[in-house]
Every structure is written in structure tokens, then in C-alpha cells.
Write a protein that binds this DNA or RNA. Structure first.
Lengths: 337, 337
DNA sequence: AGCCGGCTCTGAAACGATTCAAACTGTAGT
DNA sequence: ACTACAGTTTGAATCGTTTCAGAGCCGGCT
């Protein structure tokens, strides 16, 4: 049943070495022989056994990618960027979905180690010092780890991330530049780094405008429904109690606020309330009032992570690289461009 | 550098066979020995080499899944369902993204064959008889293929799909039951099987209501922007030229129609125009007027595909199974529940 | 004492592709 | 006629794990 190089060799009356050469270095084999061997491969339906190949090579030809949530479009794009860049380099990507669960993250880490992947791109679900040390040990043991959408101050681990503080700053600076002075930040939970960083950015932007005020409206989930609740609550306030601008920790919230305050609550967007979201999901430009948002270059992030991984592979002793992308503000009607 | 069973065996003063037994059948090894071997594994940082294991076993412990578009939430859910079910059975899933491209589909097919996956779940980008024959040959050669979200009349290949004809029928029957008589179908291109089937379903529903009429509004892409164009066009018509209900081939279109006709065009939804979409994406319940939609059980589909694959593996000679899920109509405000 | 069965452990063989030093062939140069 | 050399081909050794027939040991039974 299983056709191997031996069978092909026999069928083509050559040695196994020659078959291997036809497969991997056809230029070193006489054209006539190549043709004969390929005919035999075709006829027998030979398919290389990758396991044997890897065993011999000592390494696989793939890399592992562990994301927090494969359903999230942001990570889907990151994965795609990584996959494309890896393919250019002749590697394939094994995708794991940790679902914000440390157990599953570990399970994938183990799986990928057994597969002898060339390296791992990881969006860590948590990153306490213990965990960081463990990952650094992995790297020392010859399995490079690149942090994705995360960064470690001390910096033994290379990383690719977007500056969420800057993103928050961009958004709020823009609102201030539009003359808004009563800004609200909507987001939560604060334990999520991305949320905390975006709020920090908002605070920094505020520092430049002493006459402006920041209100933080915390919520437990970054969903449209939560946003709608917040929006309705804002609409119910007395007019002089309302913020005149809202910066949301993500687009889903912003869409909710748009619906709750703007459409159901008859607050005019952007006249009464300017609105900026985060992530620039495809939907953002398709809402009733197109949504201003902070864009993260997801695909480029994935590709960059692969590049960083390769630079570690090329020179394991080099200083770990930290690539930080800058988010980009996309102004649309919701913040009165 | 590379620690193997041999090293562990030496460190624990046992034979390699015993180490292997500790790894795979610890109950057959004396407890004291297990402890000693595990200590050695720990100390040396031994990690099983999966390639060698597979080589010996002759098969990998994974299955391949090729989807048309990993960014599409429907496929993301399908993948998730498959992954979970496969994990229960002790297999992992290799995910490939063909991007509606036959070349890439083939590339993944080859890759998975070299990996000696147990089987392949495939959402085919096209399925002419030639292609079908080729896939059937693969299956005969010991690599079972399960079609996903596709089905082949002749039926040599097992499949898991949702009945799109029934989905279309459900949607339009519902609109008729609401008293609507001038139905429009929005979708395209008609070469996409899903679109064609949903339209066919709409036609069948219409057959039961001789006094109702169906208008087909064709569009080249299933996006929000296209839907908005259609919606605006409808709003511009004279009132007695407008349909009183629209069934869209997917939710993105429906969201667009909602915006174009309802909000920008001041057609009242659902009073003047009832609206039903397809897929029940998360956004559907979060739109200004919550959107009625036809739900496909994506996760169950993925899980079922794995089950079907296993039934083929258990009994390769059995008649190919065809699982067909029934879509479910979710009525919300946009069609005046 | 001798035999038996049960429990552990052993270690060589096998999986299939790749590698690489060595062998072979034919041609050109002296 | 002989050497040199480039172009091809050979096949045994190798990667690390699992398998499995068989060996060792011990207590119990006759």
C-alpha cells in the first residue's frame, strides 16, 4: 500500500539516493534519469512521507502560532499575515487557539514542541514574571518565542506589538482638536492590557488640555450590547450632564453607543456627541454614521512577527528585537471629520 | 542538545523500551520505575519527537481542514467545531485557507498528504466532475475526504452540508406568512452555489402563493456596500413600485439594505419593507432594527464533519454518509415578528 | 525441587527519507 | 597509453521512537 522511495527506485531502476536527488536537487541528476524517475513517481502515486523527512532533518518546516481567539477578526488577519509571510519563506503555520485559557496555551506549546516547529508566535493570555521566565527558558532551549500583541519591559523576549497608548492618545487628541472638552472613555475590564493602555493614552492626551475633563465609564465586556446600554444611559442624562465626545475601547462598543445614544436616544452624532472606536473593523465604515476608528495593521503585524522570528533563527545571539507598530487614526463622519 | 529516549533510558538506568512504556502505557511499568523515568525526563528536559513517532506509527495524529475563507466568521466557527470534536478524539486539526483558489486548495491537499493526515475536511472551491473524480481517487487511495458545506449528487464522497434551498424557502415562506406579496431576492453572483440554492428555495416558497411575485435583484458581491446601493435604489422607486419584503443572500447585504433603504432612504422597516438575511452573524441582532436571519449551525457542522470522517475511518467500505443540517429561521424585528 | 503464571524489563528491528563518501563513466589533455 | 576531472550514480548509515518476542524474577502450587 505505502509506496516509498525504495519502490520508486526499483521501478525506475535507480538507487534510492538518486530518487532523493530527483526530489530535492534535480539539477544534479541527468535529465533522462529525472524523467524516468518522475514517470515512476507518477505511475506508483508516490507521496513523500514528511515525518521521515523531518526526522532526518531534525526540524520541521513549520512554525506555531497561538492566538487568543481565532474568531476575532483582528487575530484572523494577523494569522493570515503570518501565514503569507511564512509561505514566502517556505514554512507552513500551525494555528492554535488558546481561547484566553492558560491550559490550552500550554497544551499548544507542548504540541508545537513535539512537532519541532522552528519557532512560536504567541499572543500570551497573561504574562506574569514566572510565565515570562518559562518562555525565555524555552527560547534558550532552542525554541524561539516571539510575543505577539504583547511586550515585555525587561525584554528578553522579542516582540511585535502595536502601541495602544499611542492609539488612545491619537483618538482623544483628535477629539480635543475638534473642540470637544467633555470626553468619556468607555471600556473594560481594566485588567485587559489593551484596555488599560488605551485609557492611559486618553489620559495623556488630556494632559495637554487643562480645560478638558475625562470621565471613565467602565463596562465588563467589549460588545455591541454593552455599548448600547452605555449609549442609552448617556442619552437619558440631562443635556448638560452629557459628554460631548466618547472614545470606546473597541469598535463593537462604539457601534453600540452609536445605536443606543444616536438612534434610539436621538442624540445627534457627531453634532451632540463625537464618537471614536478602535480596531477599524470592516463594519466601522458601514454603520449608519460611518465610524471613526483607530486602525491596527493586523496583517503587517503577523508578517513582522515572522520576520522577527527569522532574525532570531538567523542569529540566536542577537539582541531581541522589539517591533512596535503605530496605530493610525481613521477619521470618518462620527467624529465630524 | 537533542535529548532522546536513549538519553533518558541511560539516565534512569532502564532500557529504551521501558521509557517508551512509561510514555505510552505507564500502567504496565512498576510505579517506582515510572517515578525514576519521569524524574529523568524532567531533569533532562526531554520532549518527544513527534516526527519519529509518526514515522513509526505510519500515520499522523491530525486531520486537515481546508476552508474557502478563514476570515469569514461562518468558517471560523466551523473550524472551531471541528477542532473541538477532533480534540475529543485525540487528533489535532491542521487548518488551510484556500481563499477560493484552486491552486492553493491543491497545495494544501498535497501538504496534508505528505503529512499523512488521517483525513481531510474540504470546502471545495469548485466541484466539477473531474475534480470530484480526483477526490474520490484520493479516498480510494486511503485518504478519506469529507465535503464540507457542499454535496455531490452522485454521492461517492461523504458530505456535511446545510440545505440552502430549505433556508431560502423558510425565509420567504415566513415573509409570505406575514402577508407580504411583493418579494425581492437580493444576491449574487448566481454562480455561487449557496446563492443559487437560496434563490431556488425562495422560488419554491413562492409557488405556494400564486398571488405573490418575486423580483431578483442581482449583485456582484455579498457586501454591506452593495446592499446599501440596492437599498437606496429601492428607496428611490415610486412607492407602488417597491417590494414590500426583501430576502438577502447574506446578512451583510441585509445590513446594507437596512441602512440604504431604512435609514438613509426613510423607508420604514419592517412596516414598509420586511427584511430577512442569511447566516445570523453576531451583528444581526445588534443592528438598529434587529435583523431576522437564517441561522446555520456552524459549529455543529464542523463537529459533524469530524464524526463522518471517523465513521469512514472505522469502516472504509461503508456507504458514504450525507449529513444535511436544517437551517433555522430567527425572527427579529426587521420582519415584524 | 520443579513448574507455572504473572509481572517487569530488555534491546534489536523497523518505519522511510536524506546524506555523503566512494565508485563509476566518459572525455579531454599530455 | 595514462592521468585528471567533471558529471552521475550508488547504498549503507542515520535520525528517534515504538514494537514485540523473549528473558528474568518471584511467589505459589504440586
Amino acid at each position: 500500500m505505502a509506496v516509498g522511495v525504495k519502490d520508486v527506485a526499483a521501478a525506475a531502476s535507480v538507487s534510492v539516493g538518486t530518487v532523493s536527488n530527483v526530489l530535492n536537487r534535480p539539477e544534479t541528476v541527468a535529465p533522462a534519469t529525472v524523467a524516468r524517475v518522475q514517470a515512476a513517481i507518477e505511475r506508483l502515486g508516490f507521496v513523500r512521507n514528511d515525518a521521515a523527512r523531518q526526522l532526518r532533518a531534525g526540524r520541521s518546516r513549520s512554525l506555531g502560532l497561538i492566538v487568543l481567539d481565532s474568531a476575532n477578526p483582528f487575530f484572523a488577519e494577523v494569522a493570515r499575515g503570518a501565514e503569507e509571510r511564512a509561505r514566502e519563506r517556505g514554512l507552513s503555520v500551525l494555528l492554535g487557539n488558546s481561547d484566553h485559557d492558560g491550559e490550552r496555551e500550554n497544551a499548544y506549546l507542548d504540541l508545537f514542541r513535539e512537532q519541532r516547529v522552528n519557532g512560536i508566535l504567541l499572543t500570551p493570555h497573561g504574562l506574569d514574571p514566572d510565565r515570562a521566565r518559562m518562555l525565555a527558558e524555552l527560547a534558550d532551549a532552542g525554541l524561539p518565542v516571539v510575543l505577539l500583541d504583547a511586550e515585555l519591559e525587561g525584554g528578553r523576549l522579542p516582540s511585535v506589538a502595536v502601541d495602544d497608548v499611542e492609539g488612545g492618545q491619537l483618538a482623544v487628541a483628535h477629539l480635543l482638536a475638534q473642540g470637544r472638552r467633555r470626553i468619556a472613555f468607555v471600556g473594560g475590564p481594566p485588567s485587559v492590557r489593551q484596555v488599560a493602555d488605551r485609557l492611559e493614552g486618553a489620559r495623556r492626551a488630556l494632559a495637554a488640555a487643562p480645560d478638558a475633563a475625562l470621565e471613565v465609564i467602565e463596562c465588563d465586556e467589549l460588545t455591541v450590547l454593552r455599548g448600547r446600554d452605555v449609549g442609552e444611559a448617556i442619552a437619558r442624562r440631562a443635556v448638560d450632564e452629557r459628554p460631548d465626545a466618547v472614545f470606546c475601547a473597541n469598535d463593537l462598543l462604539a457601534v453600540g453607543v452609536l445605536q443606543g445614544a444616536g438612534i434610539l436616544g436621538s442624540v445627534r452624532i457627531p453634532d451632540d456627541l463625537a464618537l471614536v472606536g478602535y480596531d477599524d473593523i470592516d463594519f466601522a465604515q458601514a454603520t449608519v454614521v460611518p465610524l471613526s476608528s483607530v486602525r491596527q495593521p493586523a496583517r503587517e503585524i503577523g508578517a513582522a512577527a515572522v520576520d522577527v522570528l527569522f532574525s532570531v533563527l538567523d542569529d540566536p545571539a542577537s539582541e531581541p528585537r522589539h517591533v512596535r507598530f503605530r496605530p493610525e487614526l481613521v477619521v470618518r463622519a462620527s467624529s465630524g471629520g
